[in-house]
Simulated assay, not measured.
Amino acid sequence: MFNDDLLICNACGTQFDTCDRNVLKNCRICDDPRQFVPPTGQSFTTLAAMRGNYETRMAPDQTNNNIISIWTEPKFAIGQRAFLIKTPHGNVLWDLVTYLNGETIRKINQEGGIQAIVISHPHYYTTHNLWAKTFRCRVYLAAEDKEWLCQRDPQGRVFIEGYKKEVIKGVTAVKVGGHFPGSLVLHWEDRLFIADSFVTVPSALYHEGRLPGTATFSFMWSIPNMIPMSPQAIVNIWNALKPYEFTTTHGAFTGLDVRDSRVKQRLLESAKIAIRAMGYEESQFIEQLSE
């Protein structure tokens, strides 16, 4: 049985291995400069306390019923969504939400369950032990980021050591780094699930008459605190993704889906925009960004 009284950070949704509020005073994920502690201070909840106050919503992608978004209402913690990707070789869950209840388990099992979970970075580790044990599957994480794990796990985790890992046939986790050293994206068919390894910006969603210099993505070391990545980190993201073809990107939050045959080119353009904005117009970094 899983303990529903384990403490969960209200700010980021990370679950810890203790129920004792006298022991756990701070969330190490939120104390990191990439995240933040709210002005009201650190606070914790539990799955037991959440039950009845939250619900998990699921909806198919508007162009592909084999992609199902999963999110929590009302918004909890960071508010990201997860994706259930249904393939002929098994189902992959990309990223996680903290809250999991019986109705969600039933609906996911009706879709064929989960054969593998891939998590983009430590901000979304949340309750991954619970998800893995519930669906009896492996969880794939970047080896570079294992220091941020807040729960013990005697089994179930697989650490990705290299630059990529095909977790199920046709579904590949690609290590791009930047936001965290091991930040991942997920490639499947013509889709790229990006979480916030790079960030979909508001101007991404309007396609007609885009003026030169209009960005589709930004590249942030800290998203909430608006600290950008270094130019070399941006170049590394492009170089990691250059071998892959994609016409759609799915961001971390509901509505952040960019559907455009030129979206890969727009990623390259966004990388150049970001680097030039840092003052590197004729630098080695721009020269490294080739198609």
Results as ranks from 00 to 15, higher is better:
residue 20 D to S: 11
residue 21 R to Q: 14
residue 21 R to C: 13
residue 22 N to W: 10
residue 22 N to Q: 15
residue 24 L to M: 10
residue 25 K to W: 08
residue 27 C to K: 05
residue 27 C to S: 09
residue 28 R to Q: 10
residue 29 I to Y: 01
residue 30 C to T: 05
residue 31 D to I: 07
residue 31 D to R: 11
residue 31 D to Q: 12
residue 32 D to T: 06
residue 33 P to D: 08
residue 34 R to H: 13
residue 37 V to R: 07
residue 40 T to H: 15
residue 40 T to S: 15
residue 41 G to A: 15
residue 41 G to S: 12
residue 42 Q to T: 15
residue 44 F to D: 04
residue 45 T to Q: 11
residue 45 T to C: 10
residue 46 T to E: 08
residue 46 T to G: 08
residue 47 L to F: 07
residue 48 A to P: 07
residue 49 A to D: 14
residue 50 M to Y: 10
residue 50 M to S: 07
residue 55 E to G: 14
residue 56 T to S: 13
residue 58 M to L: 11
residue 60 P to N: 12
residue 61 D to N: 13
residue 62 Q to L: 14
residue 62 Q to I: 12
residue 64 N to T: 06
residue 65 N to V: 05
residue 65 N to K: 09
residue 67 I to Q: 00
residue 70 I to T: 01
residue 71 W to Y: 03
residue 73 E to P: 01
residue 74 P to Y: 02
residue 74 P to L: 04
residue 75 K to H: 05
residue 75 K to V: 03
residue 75 K to F: 02
residue 77 A to P: 02
residue 81 R to A: 07
residue 82 A to L: 07
residue 84 L to G: 03
residue 85 I to C: 04
residue 85 I to V: 12
residue 85 I to A: 04
residue 86 K to P: 02
residue 88 P to Q: 04
residue 91 N to G: 02
residue 91 N to I: 00
residue 93 L to H: 00
residue 93 L to C: 01
residue 93 L to D: 00
residue 94 W to V: 01
residue 95 D to S: 07
residue 95 D to E: 05
residue 96 L to A: 00
residue 97 V to D: 02
residue 98 T to K: 00
residue 98 T to Q: 01
residue 101 N to H: 12
residue 102 G to N: 11
residue 103 E to W: 07
residue 105 I to W: 05
residue 105 I to Y: 06
residue 105 I to H: 05
residue 107 K to D: 09
residue 108 I to P: 01
residue 109 N to I: 11
residue 109 N to Y: 09
residue 110 Q to K: 15
residue 111 E to V: 15
residue 113 G to E: 14
residue 114 I to V: 09
residue 115 Q to K: 12
residue 117 I to Q: 00
residue 118 V to Q: 01
residue 118 V to C: 03
residue 119 I to N: 01
residue 120 S to F: 01
residue 121 H to L: 03
residue 122 P to S: 03
residue 124 Y to K: 03
residue 124 Y to N: 02
residue 124 Y to Q: 04
residue 125 Y to R: 02
residue 126 T to D: 03
residue 126 T to I: 03
residue 126 T to W: 02
residue 127 T to H: 02
residue 127 T to E: 01
residue 128 H to G: 03
residue 133 K to I: 10
residue 135 F to G: 09
residue 136 R to N: 15
residue 136 R to E: 10
residue 136 R to P: 05
residue 136 R to I: 11
residue 137 C to E: 09
residue 137 C to M: 14
residue 138 R to Y: 14
residue 138 R to T: 15
residue 140 Y to S: 08
residue 140 Y to Q: 10
residue 141 L to R: 14
residue 142 A to Y: 14
residue 143 A to G: 12
residue 145 D to S: 15
residue 146 K to A: 10
residue 146 K to Q: 13
residue 147 E to Y: 13
residue 148 W to N: 09
residue 148 W to M: 12
residue 149 L to W: 09
residue 149 L to Y: 06
residue 150 C to Q: 14
residue 150 C to H: 10
residue 151 Q to A: 04
residue 153 D to S: 15
residue 154 P to D: 14
residue 154 P to A: 12
residue 155 Q to C: 13
residue 156 G to E: 12
residue 158 V to Y: 06
residue 159 F to P: 01
residue 162 G to I: 04
residue 163 Y to D: 13
residue 163 Y to H: 11
residue 164 K to D: 04
